[in-house]
Write a protein that binds this DNA or RNA. Structure first.
Lengths: 161, 161
DNA sequence: TATTGTTATACTCTATAACTATA
DNA sequence: TATAGTTATAGAGTATAACAATA
């Protein structure tokens, strides 16, 4: 009597899965040599993709005030994950970029996050993986078409096998 | 030559979808009459399911120090979302619970979050919804079996249609 | 003068430690 | 004394506003 899943069925399970993953990812946060705050991590995510931006642009990307970003950069620089360089074109701007250690940290964090998911996905039989990928891709595409500019894609490390 | 999706295919799309949803949910955060911080929201989520607990237990549930929780409760009480009552059994304990307004706020927030998802899920044809639900349920169950105690289920409002 | 980045100040969150009051 | 809760005190994130330096 229920040939296809209703919208509310999807909402329920989708919510559960997202919350499960959020809990898992929370747990892979602290396992680092230099514990980084969530805000600092956001800075690193942005800088990874737009290396060399100035402080103002970084603030806009984060939707944060310049002063806040300045302080965040202070601390990231202090732990050696960020480089502040004077801009060669304008002496009142800075060029912000991740240091080598900063990049290494991000790769490491991503790997830990994926490892948590892999542990679970690896349990699924091949047919279930295909079903899941198929459903998720349709959701992703629908989400992208509804909110074209607001997708939070993570391109790094997304090489298909 | 690829009869079924590989594990890395799943990881890629799953990561994308979770990040999309996190971005969406972030946006439904500030649309409230009394803006609540993330920490305060966590308090409310816990209290919703364990009404009447004392401050110590709440702190353990949040993995936060008692003093932090005390301050969080101060502010939640100030905006009228939380009630502090003296325990009838032990005069050194308090009974923490959500006020009526607090509960109403949570319901409202949940509805906003679901509305964001519903907008997208509603776009999917029925067959795609079924595929998605099927795949997600298998993931959820696998996740629950791998991490039995760490599931972040959201039972409220999960009535199936 | 307008812009970039940094401090000054203030508020919230967080934690450890000290304190009060109960058991 | 041991425990529950609340204050000190301190450090980090956030924002607005004031400030320095540059364009």
């Amino acid at each position: 009597m229920r040939p296809h899943a209703g919208v509310d069925d999807v909402l329920q399970v989708l919510t559960q899965v997202v919350e499960q993953i959020e809990v898992m990812w929370e747990r892979s946060k602290d396992v680092s040599p230099a514990p980084i705050s969530v805000s600092q991590l956001r800075v690193m995510f942005v800088l990874e993709k737009s290396s060399g931006t100035n402080l103002r642009a970084l603030g806009e990307a984060l939707d944060a005030a310049p002063s806040s970003v300045s302080r965040l950069c202070d601390r990231l620089q202090a732990v050696g994950f960020l480089d502040r360089a004077l801009s060669p074109t304008s002496r009142r701007e800075v060029e912000l970029s991740l240091s080598e250690r900063g990049r290494a940290y991000l790769l490491d964090l991503r790997e830990r996050r994926r490892e948590h998911l892999r542990e679970i996905v690896g349990e699924l039989p091949p047919a279930a993986r295909s079903t899941l990928v198929s459903g998720l891709r349709k959701f992703r595409d629908a989400a992208t078409s509804v909110h074209p500019l607001e997708d939070g894609h993570d391109e790094a490390g997304s090489q298909s096998a």
